[in-house]
Design a protein around this nucleic acid. Structure first.
Lengths: 146, 146
DNA sequence: TCCTTATTGATACGTGGTATCAATAAGGAG
DNA sequence: CTCCTTATTGATACCACGTATCAATAAGGA
């Protein structure tokens, strides 16, 4: 599974542009996201953060997750381990696949989803404004290592 | 939005066949599910259950939800109001649409989703064994009443 | 360097869900 | 129908995740 990732500079810039102060906690947490290929819960991120920054507060991490989500920089994963984990948002690659064996997240081209939505709108008469799709299974790597 | 619903008899039969005892709490809760067009949380179902059966325990309702989910009779809704609500499972109609205005759930034909999964498997090399798709927007009724 | 104020960390709190365990009731055997 | 075994229940305590509060800290502009 290829390691697609995000650029911490962009995230800090986004926070700055939105009028938030740039702090060291932010840098720490953004770095944690940038270097993880797995979906992260606030609790997990808190544990990692305290390794390099022991005084980090729990509430602060939750607040930062909220902020990052509201800015669209991370999105929630609705998975087998609950709904409290997040992954970085990759524009144009919104379809998320989670491997049930290694736990890693992979992003897929979302064009097929757009087609599906159009189709379903026509068939049902509903106006669809948002969608959540997640796929689960065995990633290419984990299939080989059986 | 048409009121598709399920048959309480079938659910009781399914519980019986799985070796569970048939109890009055079960009948109460199954009835509540059969008569609601909205996704239900355990807490909500508990409130309703106590109207006709005041001594009903909270844990019992959570246990029953767990049982019904494990038997595949209800499924979790990953929605804007959290991930703790459930709807009855309708086989062959697995794609769920939730109206953001009236809150009702509608089931859509899941053939397009099957196609999407096939497509994504080919493109990514992953083996997809499970999926979660939910659509949000304005249902046909709520679009008219604007 | 100082000052204002957003952000932080510690703590307490709230809600959704689970473990425990004695009391109850399903339902098969006689 | 009655008895007996045991799954199920209800009450309580408990735990995990997340949020509100508020004094202390630190960004960053003047």
């Amino acid at each position: 599974m290829p390691g697609k990732t995000i650029n911490p500079e962009d995230w800090l810039a986004a926070l700055d542009e939105s009028g938030f102060r740039v702090t060291t906690v932010q840098e720490t947490l953004i770095d944690i996201f940038a270097h993880s290929e797995y979906p992260l819960s606030a609790e997990q991120a808190w544990d990692v953060a305290r390794q390099s920054r022991p005084k980090t507060g729990r509430a602060t991490v939750y607040r930062m997750f909220e902020k990052l989500e509201s800015l669209g920089l991370i999105r929630r994963v609705h998975g087998y381990e609950g709904c409290s984990r997040f992954v970085p948002t990759l524009p144009e690659l919104m379809m998320l696949f989670i491997c049930l064996y290694c736990g890693r997240a992979d992003y897929l081209d979302s064009q097929p989803l757009d087609n599906l939505i159009q189709q379903s709108e026509l068939a049902s008469g509903h106006h669809i404004t948002d969608s959540r799709l997640q796929l689960f299974g065995a990633c290419a790597d984990c299939q080989q290592n059986d």
